[in-house]
């Protein structure tokens, strides 16, 4: 595993904990869209954006495409 991948695993572990703890404790009884609905949208968006960042370092050797 590269250093970048190890950072990714650490980030993912942190995500896994926060993703469950916050909605099941702090936001459990918040009955508005600003509660768990917003939280789960934001934390997932954060993972997606982090995915954009972590894969930005992938080099490309190119390759022939026949199905576009």
């Amino acid at each position: 595993m590269t250093q970048r991948e190890k950072t990714w695993v650490l980030f993912s572990t942190l995500y896994g904990i926060v993703n469950v703890v916050v909605p099941f404790t702090l936001l459990r009884n918040v009955g508005t869209l600003a509660g768990a609905f917003l939280f789960w949208n934001l934390i997932t968006a954060a993972v997606v954006l982090a995915g954009v960042w972590i894969t930005s370092g992938w080099k490309d050797r190119g390759g022939e495409e026949t199905l576009r």
């Binding site: 991948e5 990714w8 993703n19 609905f37 789960w40 949208n41 997932t44 993972v47 997606v48 995915g51």
Partner: peptide, 21 residues
Amino acid sequence: GIGSLGFEMTYLAATVILMVI
């Protein structure tokens, strides 16, 4: 209710995490 969003979003985030690895 909203628990289903947590379930499906967790699936999506986990898929992104696993695909990167």
